[in-house]
Design a protein around this nucleic acid. Structure first.
Length: 559
RNA sequence: GCCCCCGUAGCUCAGUGGACAGAGCACCGGACUUCUAAUCCGAUGGUCGCAGGUUCGAAUCCUGCCGGGGGUGCCA
């Protein structure tokens, strides 16, 4: 990556300057290479001289001059100019830029990959909504962020697994079971009510009907307080199936649907279960204390504000206990090097104690990354869509996907920083018009595909094209934009912020549309230039398809 | 009360401590005999919530305040 090359060059220059007595021997900070906001400041810049000025007790501009004078030669750099108050601005050589078209074509579908992960195993766990109902529209945000982050990490050289935790144990499962049993027995004419804290949705009636068909009347007289396991587990299986369908519609595929229940089941080979092992570890380290009839995780010892209950006075483990066992399983048993959890803002209070718990079971808490995304509100144009379980106008994820399409849904969910609350305009997302950024980007891809198809028809070929002919500003700007993809992948993998991708895709599309307007590709009177531009189009198509591919958005051939 | 996130153009939002703060949409004005006008070019639009502080340099870091959202010991 050119940016890394520049960084290395600057460091070399700084050491050379020190060796030649042009710069006092000081500790070099990491050499950062920035992208200047203004084009006249070149393609890249470093402010290292400004950072060195104090330690070196020298004028930063003078340092910049000396460093610039010591920079190793490079075919990629046309100019490295000191600029006040103490920058070095780099301008890339046009010939080098043009040559990158061949480099991108050679990289092919792997263009954009970076070697950052070194094959380390990372698990991305996302959505993991209770399988007690269909996914809501808000879950779509977690789905898009998690799925795309996983793709980005893959591109960055990690070995990635996508996981959904199926909560098929615990309080909510009990409530689900009792609701389901009530609905099921109602079908046999029994006068039973669903629990007050149960799930009132119509889907529970549908589910009960389906189970009645499958299981017959064998549980028609079961006690309402003790839902039969077969009924409950079958009910959860059906819900999980539907969740899987919803995910598929959004284009998300999981590697693993992990059952919470399995944490309590002994593994073959006498290893015991993850829950016992995790609790034993905590107990062994003195993190479990008993008070008020319950068992607590002494998180205050790890700097938390308060302790947290792991085993209720009823003897049942809390969700927190389950989650500790789950993370114990992820790290200690399955051996992930890095675990990323994607949670909605309503789980924010759970973050710091989870990190403390991970530390308590002997895992470096930095190996657990918890991404909290803020809540989503939906609207149609000016009209706010209220999400209310009670009012029954709950917006489902599948409704959103059906209404606006998977491509637009993913693009929109992704385009905002996880830290920001977002407004999702269903009307805009569905609009097949210029104001919809999804189509803008896809149209760029379709346009390129169109040119390439026309080229083949009219006997044009990129074969033997000489990229040195590419010198038009619009051509070079397009190349510059394409070269940003690997940098972006690296940055997103480090920051775990996939929301930059849609913005990049838009910029890339803009660069292509500008090129399209300014430069005619297929010109019978200029065959060599046409061949070179066809190469450029090929590279642009690769890059755009990769950006779309990382987002899980389709790259259409025609629109 | 305490904890977390946010506050940037009319709207929706970007903005790795750097040089004169950006995009899309909306609005206004232009550009189709040419590979898809779902496009392009231009104009308008800003006390970066407020006040301090750190720094050579702050939208970005720190503190306080104001406003919005979320959370807050045996729900998940």
């Amino acid at each position: 990556m050119i940016r890394d090359d520049l960084s290395a060059m600057v460091e070399t220059a700084a050491r050379a300057a020190m060796d030649h007595g042009e710069l006092p021997r000081v500790v070099l900070p990491e050499v950062t290479i920035e992208r200047p906001a203004r084009p006249e400041h070149g393609d890249y810049a470093t402010s290292l001289p400004l950072r060195l000025a104090r330690a070196a007790r020298a004028d930063p501009l003078e340092i910049a001059r000396r460093l610039a004078g010591r920079l190793p030669a490079s075919g990629a750099v046309a100019a490295a100019e000191p600029a006040p108050p103490g920058f070095i601005n780099f301008r890339l050589s046009e010939a080098w830029l043009a040559s990158q078209v061949d480099a991108i074509m050679a990289a092919g579908a792997a263009f954009g990959d970076v070697a950052l992960g070194g094959g380390r195993r990372v698990q991305v766990e996302f959505v993991s909504a209770n399988p007690t109902g269909p996914l809501t529209a808000g879950n779509g945000r977690g789905a898009a962020i998690g799925d795309v982050l996983a793709s980005v990490l893959q591109a960055a050289g990690y070995q990635v697994e996508r996981e959904y935790l199926v909560n098929d144990a615990g309080t909510q499962t009990d409530v689900f079971g009792r609701t389901l049993l009530a609905r099921y027995q109602q079908l046999f004419g029994r006068d039973v009510e669903i629990p007050a804290d149960g799930y009132p949705g119509e889907y529970m009636v549908d589910l009960a009907r389906r189970l009645k068909d499958e299981l017959g009347a064998r549980y028609a007289d079961a006690s309402i307080d003790a839902p039969p396991e077969e009924l409950v587990l079958r009910g959860i299986d059906v819900m999980v199936e539907q969740i899987g369908e919803d995910m598929k519609r959004l284009g998300v595929r999981y590697d693993e649907w992990f059952r919470e229940r399995s944490l309590y089941q002994d593994e073959p080979g006498g290893a015991g279960n993850a829950y016992d092992a995790a609790m034993q570890t905590l107990r062994g380290k003195g993190y479990l204390v008993e008070k008020e009839g319950a068992l607590w995780f002494a998180s205050t010892e790890l700097g938390e504000d308060k302790d947290n209950v792991v085993i209720r006075s009823t003897g049942k483990p809390t969700y927190f206990a389950s989650d500790i066992a789950y993370h114990f399983d992820k790290f200690a048993r399955r051996g992930f090097d890095l675990v990323i959890d994607i949670w909605g803002a309503d789980h924010q209070g759970h973050v710091s104690r989870m990190k403390a718990a991970v530390e308590a079971i002997g895992v470096d808490p930095d190996h657990l990354d918890i991404i909290i995304y803020q809540l989503v509100s939906f609207r149609r144009g000016d009209e706010l869509v209220r999400l209310s379980k009670r009012a029954g106008n709950l917006v489902l994820m599948r409704d959103v996907v059906d209404e606006v399409g998977a491509d637009a849904a993913r693009f929109f969910f992704l385009a905002r920083s996880a830290d920001s609350q977002m407004e999702f305009d269903l009307e805009l997302a569905k609009k097949q018009a210029a104001e919809n950024p999804v189509y803008y980007v896809q149209y760029a891809h379709a346009r390129i595909a169109g040119i390439l198809a026309n080229a083949a028809e009219r006997g044009f070929s990129a074969e033997g094209g000489d990229v040195r002919l590419l010198a038009h500003p619009a051509e070079l700007d397009l190349v510059r934009k394409m070269l940003q993809l690997p940098e972006l992948v690296q940055m997103m993998a480090r920051s775990k912020e996939p929301h930059h991708l849609p913005h990049y895709a838009q910029d890339l599309a803009t660069a292509f549309h500008a090129f399209y307007t300014e430069c005619r590709v297929l010109d019978a009177d200029a065959r060599p230039l046409s061949a070179a531009r066809l190469k450029l189009c090929g590279a642009a198509r690769l890059t755009l398809a990769r950006a779309l591919g990382l987002m899980g958005v389709s790259a259409p051939e025609r629109m």
